[in-house]
């Protein structure tokens, strides 16, 4: 089966670098080159990970972070797709919104958290609103690029046959921008996770970010690493 052989080969290549790093790390600690207080060896980390999973702390925190990211992501992504298409289709929308969007996009979202908490209260709403905003801005830009990249000829063709704006949207703009909507979803969900964890780090609400912060404060570096790994694992897929 050539496809499976191909898959095995690419999987092996993908795992090569992490495996080498972990091996070097383990060897470094064993040979006393690395200080185990700052760099606990991977063997210890795996044990810690198993312990944390067994106690239910880790799965609970992961679920909390993922749920928060997802709850903020969904409305943000939907509004982002709609806005992106509006920007791509309408020149008036573009002229009106693009400069503000660009300014907002480059602003660190976390800086807005205090304002959000003042307005929406210190609860979950403010955190979700921040994740939604971050998602929305990134998604808008992806979808906007996708719509703008559609060959004008396709739009002209549809108009040629008397397409209504709704038909044009459904049959040309949406399917034409679909690849970018997919990439946007992938990239943006990563951002939603990052914001979610950052918010936890700052506000101390339950989740992976909070666990990371607690671990660093109590100098349990092995716990810290396990959570940072897990977080990048979530993001990578």
């Amino acid at each position: 089966m050539p496809f499976q052989a191909e898959l095995r080969k690419s999987l092996a290549l993908a795992l090569l670098l992490p495996a080498l790093v972990l091996l070097g790390w383990e060897a470094g600690v064993r040979l006393a080159v690395l200080d185990p207080i700052f760099f606990p060896p991977p063997s210890t980390l795996i044990r810690t990970a198993l312990r944390l999973s067994a106690s239910g702390d880790l799965p609970r925190a992961t679920a909390a972070t993922l749920t928060r990211a997802l709850l903020g992501f969904l409305p943000g992504a939907l509004v982002g797709i709609a806005l992106g298409i509006a920007l791509g289709v309408s020149v008036i929308c573009r002229r009106m919104l693009e400069p503000s969007m660009a300014g907002f996009y480059s602003m660190p979202k976390l800086a807005l958290l205090p304002i959000f908490m003042l307005i929406l209260g210190a609860g979950e709403t403010a955190r979700l609103a921040l994740i939604a905003l971050g998602t929305m801005l990134a998604m808008t830009i992806h979808v906007f690029d996708g719509v703008r990249a559609i060959d004008v000829g396709y739009v002209e063709m549809a108009r040629n046959y008397g397409a209504t704006p709704w038909m044009l949207l459904r049959k040309v703009h949406l399917p034409g921008a679909l690849p970018q909507i997919f990439t946007g979803t992938r990239v943006t969900f990563g951002r939603a996770l990052v914001i979610s964890i950052s918010v936890e780090l700052v506000t101390g609400s339950p989740g992976l970010g909070n666990m990371i912060w607690l671990a660093s404060q109590t100098f349990s570096t092995e716990r810290l690493y396990v959570r940072v790994w897990l977080r990048s694992g979530c993001w990578g897929c």
């Binding site: 060959d151 396709y154 002209e156 008397g162």
Partner: peptide, 10 residues
């Protein structure tokens, strides 16, 4: 109706 067939990308 006037219809244009393009050189490519039709």
């Amino acid at each position: 109706r006037t219809i244009l067939i393009r050189q490519e990308g039709s």
